[in-house]
């Protein structure tokens, strides 16, 4: 996520029914910075007919009223915004510290992750706590943050068999990202710990505790596995 290039991402529009278009960018992490900035710009409602925005890691789904605008008009308008968008500066984001109780009953997959990565459990925890990450997007479930990118040492595929129910607060990793389950949900990521932080409260503004653009650091609690 370093500002290592002035070349903007390559964008592509894909259709999503008569009332939405999906904007996708490559490479993913550079596109993520633009998606966060573009979402903020569009929340000013500069384009009539736009009804909802759903940012992904490297994409933005734009839902619109097809009786007001059509997809090509939305695409032209988004294209203009992107053309005039400076490469977003590294976000002057707040850094949120998430306390985590690693291992044991809180992190039933920690040992399996150690085995898969060839690290010890303490090294897995140290690696997970080492970097300050970015919240890339919020999706899947209310308040679920996609956080990353993880270093190559912790980049492993999803579990072969997803769990039917993951405990709320579970801190998990898969596919180069780490995330936190805000509620009891089905899930296929490896569970390495649990946080007492509440990630979603519909009475709060915003209701999601973490939002794209935030930065995140994990901190081990003393009564769990520590580095």
């Amino acid at each position: 996520m370093e500002r290592d290039s002035t070349t903007p991402p390559a964008w592509r529009f894909r259709p999503m029914g008569e009332a939405a278009v999906l904007l996708e960018g490559q490479p993913a992490l550079l596109a993520n910075r633009y998606v966060v900035a573009l979402t903020a710009a569009l929340e000013e409602r500069v384009i009539p007919g736009i009804e909802a925005l759903v940012p992904g890691v490297s994409s933005l789904l734009v839902r619109f009223d097809p009786l007001t605008v059509d997809a090509s008009e939305v695409e032209v308008a988004l294209g203009k915004l992107l053309d005039h968008m400076e490469p977003p500066a590294p976000a002057q984001a707040r850094v949120v510290t998430i306390p985590v109780r690693y291992g044991g009953a809180c992190g039933p997959d920690l040992e399996a992750v150690a085995e898969l990565t060839g690290l010890s459990v303490r090294e897995v925890v140290a690696e997970h706590c080492r970097a300050v990450y970015h919240v890339l997007t919020v999706g899947f479930a209310p308040g679920f943050p996609y956080i990353g990118p993880l270093g190559t040492a912790l980049t492993i595929p999803r579990r072969q068999t997803p769990r039917a129910a993951v405990a709320p607060g579970s801190v998990a990793l898969a596919a180069g990202l780490t995330g936190i389950y805000p509620a009891q949900l089905p899930g296929g990521w490896h569970l390495i710990g649990r946080t007492p932080v509440r990630l979603f409260n519909p009475a709060n503004t915003p209701p999601a505790f973490l939002m794209p653009g935030d930065r995140v650091r994990f901190e081990p609690l003393a009564d769990g596995i520590t580095p």
């Binding site: 999503m16 029914g17 996708e24 940012p55 890691v57 490297s58 994409s59 899947f140």
Partner: peptide
Amino acid sequence: IPSHGVVPGAIQIPPDGGPILLTADAQTT
């Protein structure tokens, strides 16, 4: 493919080839 926003009405095809029609409470991505 990287996770992206979806809409109710989208027809997903998982690797087993059995279609899933997303409806009102579909997950957002």
